[in-house]
Every structure is written in structure tokens, then in C-alpha cells.
Design a protein around this nucleic acid. Structure first.
Lengths: 238, 238
DNA sequence: CCAAAAGTGTTCGTACTACACCCATGC
DNA sequence: GCATGGGTGTAGTACGAACACTTTTGG
């Protein structure tokens, strides 16, 4: 087959998670920004932010770029989710979408553009979306919840330093269930990925909690296949 | 950006695993078939079997098709691995490759085409490959080893029925380390995915082992995102 | 009987859970 | 002091690793 005749468009889309209080429960929960489609197919429906992959940008760069363009956000975590390539997922056209998922901090999400055509939704309570995007978000949510339990990605929702309670609340928001503070503390302390600082947070009506930060000698951005090779890598995105 | 000007070629490649005795140790180990490139870039080097994605075939179909074309094999397991899209991974061209990994049975692998331009290699002892294919195989091996420990994919290397020792030997071949027969038995029995049959294998100079088969009510092919939604699915590829 | 692999029992250590309890601060 | 969350201790349980032991066949 000649490449010129391939006729397949290559897109990226990104599921961008931030934590916000859920309107029903008041508890913190994952939210995502969606953009309203102006043209057909699926004109008028909400869809994941995305766009075509440029000639001279990698897939991850393309994801970061259109994330920045549509929401003015820079992710603290970005990882490939899956490549969706069913023939009929876009009517008339043939589009293969490489989907990424990203985490951003709540403060950033506050500043994010929001308007007629960009709006944030609670990730587990979405309207009908364009294309196969409902399925994609479900999968991204599953990945987020699975991965938060065995990796350090929760950190991407927080700033440089944080208390163990703040970290636990991130886990609780993602998993949507309460965690035992005592056991959570021991688990995370024994994982060896956390460094206690001397600073404490004063001003609360209780014993001041210690601030922690992550051990920066461990990678936070998922490099895909590469991250399993190298062991001494130190690059970290804040 | 107009799609017509995108100028990105979309390919699939597949890492196909079969188990064969390793020449050094004599122990069973993962092998993969590679094809020799005839043209530049990387002419003369070995590479993963692959090809362009057709206009009217899904990514998984494309993987299965070129797997059949290059090795005359049909996989018992097929799953997407990762989409590789760095700008410079192919000199001059811009190629995005969606890579799949597949498992085939040893008997099938015996019949597989092998010749001047198709040859099997021990997966952990490869020559320098074309493109970024060495990295890809490393990643696929990592995925295989990780997944064999928590899922039922080992079954894809075996026939309809098998003894627990045969199943254990598959795990040992993949993980390249011996497993305790007693503990392995209990683990797999308590997982509830195995059904004992009445048949036993006689003729050995020892107590005849019972034959087992997998509970077919559980999916073997990885449907990607979809497999996490449905719970009652029953489709199985033998 | 012996060899060899199938299959069972038992002990030990680790890790997670639940929950009682003490500590340090603001008011 | 007292309320509030920070932080520690501890007993119960589940699960995997290690390994001794019994069972059933062929020779």
C-alpha cells in the first residue's frame, strides 16, 4: 500500500483531570474539561479537547499543545492512554486518535478558560459525548484509580510540599472512598518516596501537621516504554 | 491544520511471542519472529513484522493481518502495547506506529514460515534492530512478564487442556525463574479460573496428573478499554 | 522396592485492616 | 479544659514463601 493513499487522519485527544468538590456530595472528586463541537459530526455535543498531530511534533507534544490551546493549562502529569482506531468511530472520516490523560492542580484548573465552548464536568457524571468519548473517559478514570494505588501520581494534584492529610484527601477524591489516616500514613511512609521537611503548618485548631515533599530522584512523567529501562533518571516536572 | 497535509504515515507492528527452548540453557523461553528489511531505511537489519494500516481495517485487524501475512500465524492473544510517535524514529519519513503484542502456541510457531527473511530469535538476546524496535521489544517483554503474574494470559501458550505442571512451566519460561509447584498449584486453584477435568495423563513414570481447562466464561482477548466496562462477556478466541 | 512427579500439610514472615489511644495546638 | 485533627501502638487476618511429607504411577 502506498502511504500517500492511506487516507487516515491522526488525532490526539486528552482526558484532563483536576479535583473539585462534587456538587451533590460536596466531597472532592475528579473533573474534566470538555469542549463543545461547533461543526458536524456531532456538532453541539461535548467532546474531549483534541486536534490533529502536527508534522513535526511528537504525540506527547501534540497532546500538551492542544491541552494548552484549549484550556490554557500545563499538565503536571501526562501519559498515553490508548490508541483508538475502529473504522467507524467517526462517521464518514477515518480517524485514529491517540488519547492521553493528564493531571493538573486545582489552582491551575481554577484559572482555566471556561466559557460557552469550554466547560468542566464531574468525570463520573457526563452527558452524552461525541464519538466514543464516553468510553474513553471511563477507561481513563479506571486507569487513574488503578494507578493512584500503586504509583506516585497523586502528587501531581498537589504543590511542592503538602501534609499527609492533603495527600490522603487526594487519594480519597480519586478513589471516592475514605481511607484510614493511620494506615495511609504508614503505607506512604514505608514506600520511601516521601521526604519529611522541618516545616509545619500552623494556625489550625489542632496539632500542626508536618509538611512533606516527594523524593525528586524518581520520575513523575510517564515516559512510556523508556521509563522501564532507565533506573537512575532524575528529570521531574513540577 | 488541514488533514490532507498531515503527512504522517500510520503503521502497525507486532511483537509475537512463542515459547521455545533457549539454546544456552535448554530451558523454555520467549522467542519472537523478526523480518529482514530489504530496503532503506535500515536495509539489511532485522525488524518487527508490520505494515501500513488499511483504510477500512481497525488497528487490531491490521495487526492480525500482517501477523498472518509475515508469519502465517493466528494469535491466541492480541493486545495493544503502545503508540510510538517520536518525530525522528524513522529517518526522513514521519511514521507513527501502533504496536501490538501477541501470543502464539509453540506448535503453531513450529509451522511458521522461516527463511532467509523471517527468523525467530530469543527475545532477551536480540541483535541491533531497525528503528526503535529494540526498545519496543524490551517493553513488550516487560508487559508480558508483568501481566502473566496477575492475568490468565499464560493460557494462550497452551492447548485446550493442560496439566498444572505445563501451566507452571509456561510461567517459568516467561518469568525465567523456577516456581514452587505446591504454591503455584494453590494460587491458581484458588483463583477460580481453572476447571478440573476427569481426564488424566497416563504413561509417565509417575503419578498421572489431572488435566485442567480454563473457565471459558472469562474473556481472553484484551478488548482494551471495553473490557473494563462489560462484565458478562463470553467471547473467547481459541 | 525405587524413582519421579503429583499433590497435601504446616510453619513462618510480611502486609494490610480496624480501631484504641496519646499528642500538640487554638480557643 | 476541651475540641480537633496529628500521629503511634497493637491485635487480627490474609496471603505468599519455604519446605517437609504423603500419594500414585512406571519400571
Amino acid at each position: 500500500m502506498a502511504r500517500e493513499e492511506q487516507g487516515i487522519a491522526l488525532a490526539v485527544s486528552t482526558v484532563i483531570f483536576a479535583l473539585r468538590p462534587h456538587p451533590d456530595t460536596g466531597l472532592s472528586a475528579p473533573w474534566i474539561p470538555l469542549v463543545r463541537r461547533i461543526a458536524d459530526p456531532f456538532g453541539g455535543l461535548w467532546a474531549l479537547p483534541g486536534g490533529w498531530v502536527g508534522q513535526s511534533e511528537s504525540l506527547a507534544d501534540a497532546a500538551a499543545r492542544n491541552l494548552l490551546e484549549t484550556t490554557a493549562l500545563e499538565p503536571t502529569y501526562l501519559e498515553q492512554l490508548y490508541a483508538f482506531g475502529d473504522v467507524d468511530r467517526s462517521p464518514a472520516d477515518r480517524v485514529v486518535s491517540v488519547v492521553y490523560w493528564a493531571l493538573v492542580r486545582a489552582e491551575q484548573a481554577q484559572q482555566a478558560l471556561e466559557g460557552e465552548n469550554v466547560r468542566w464536568f464531574a468525570a463520573d457524571d457526563l452527558p452524552q459525548l461525541a464519538f466514543d468519548h464516553n468510553v474513553i473517559v471511563e477507561y481513563a478514570l479506571w486507569r487513574l484509580r488503578t494507578k493512584v494505588e500503586y504509583s506516585r501520581i497523586a502528587r501531581a494534584f498537589l504543590g511542592e510540599t503538602f501534609t499527609l492529610t492533603e495527600l490522603r484527601e487526594v487519594h480519597e477524591a480519586v478513589l471516592q472512598r475514605p481511607l484510614d489516616p493511620a494506615n495511609f500514613r504508614r503505607q506512604v511512609e514505608s514506600s520511601g518516596t516521601l521526604v519529611p521537611t522541618e516545616a509545619k503548618v500552623e494556625g489550625g485548631r489542632h496539632r500542626p501537621p508536618r509538611l512533606y515533599r516527594y523524593d525528586h530522584s524518581i520520575e513523575l512523567v510517564d515516559n512510556g516504554p523508556l521509563s522501564h529501562e532507565k533506573t537512575g533518571s532524575t528529570r521531574v516536572v513540577s
